[in-house]
């Protein structure tokens, strides 16, 4: 028996919006500790990994671990039927369940919507992601990161990210010309969510596809801050933390031959 009731149902709606562009089908792996999902995009260039901890639900019940195979587009369509302030409850009987029940209660508890989503068998490759000490970790406003990706898309399909002592620089070069945006590390005691924090072990310079980064920024509504972790010749980690867990995106770099 699996049951998870999320008071802030709107969070689940935002989460689905932030993964559906990248991944079509995925397993929600449910266990005592919470709900996890890991899936790569079709081209094996990007990966999304999300975790919703059991403590974030009220109540949360999961007798034993199992996977719910979901078409994310279909789930997203059903979640659009929930109000932003609704309480969302997910239910499935056991591992052989062929559907996921969803109920949407409004805040006054006088309107309850009930839906069933057919589940599917998904044979998914699971990657083991090593613990990494990154060369550079940047915490910055998520809206700023979104704007930079959007702006540089005008110029090129790729962006080079250079991190040095107190600066992160995003550079794009294309047929029409070039552009770059430099952000200096700042510390705003009054508004820490607006500051740019750079932790640097050694300088890093890496190139990434902007198309994927634009997809990752669908996570912007989930958190005011985004965390970028970079190491030379390693995939980039883009993380949005939530009270209840996180969503992490990994992107393989472009490397010169």
């Amino acid at each position: 028996m699996f049951e998870a009731r999320l008071i802030q149902g709107g969070l689940l709606k935002k989460l689905l919006e932030s993964v559906k562009e990248l991944v079509t089908d995925a397993n929600f792996d449910c266990s005592e500790s919470g709900i996890a999902l890991q899936a790569m995009d079709n081209s094996h260039v990007a990966l999304v990994s999300l975790l919703l901890r059991s403590e974030g639900f009220d109540p949360y019940r999961c007798d034993r671990g199992f996977s719910l195979g979901v078409n994310l587009n279909s789930l997203n369509k059903i979640l659009k039927c929930a109000g932003n302030d609704d309480i969302i409850t997910l239910r499935a009987d056991d591992n052989s369940a062929d559907s996921l029940s969803l109920s949407f209660e409004n805040p006054n508890n006088d309107r309850i919507g009930e839906y069933e989503l057919k589940l599917m068998d998904i044979d998914q490759e699971h990657l083991s992601i090593p613990e990494t000490d990154y060369d550079a970790t940047i915490i910055m406003p998520s809206a700023e990161f979104q704007r930079i990706c959007r702006d540089l898309t005008v110029v090129s399909e790729s962006v080079t990210i250079d991190v040095s002592k107190d600066t992160i620089k995003f550079t794009a070069e294309g047929e029409l010309g070039s552009g770059n945006i430099k952000l200096k590390s700042t510390s705003s005691i009054d508004k820490p969510e607006e500051s740019v924090n750079i932790e640097l072990g050694q300088d890093v310079s890496l190139q990434f596809s902007l198309k994927y980064l634009m997809n990752f920024t669908k996570g912007t509504p989930l958190s005011e801050q985004v965390i970028l972790c970079l190491s030379e010749k390693m995939p980039l980690l883009v993380e949005y933390k939530m009270d209840i867990g996180y969503i992490r995106y990994y992107l393989a770099p472009k490397i010169g031959d």
């Binding site: 790569m40 990007a46 083991s128 992601i129 995939p235 393989a252 472009k254 490397i255 031959d257």
Partner: peptide, 14 residues
Amino acid sequence: VSSQKSLLSFFGKS
């Protein structure tokens, strides 16, 4: 010229 790498060349299957 740089080419897009696959994640599979960094992360192993578990």
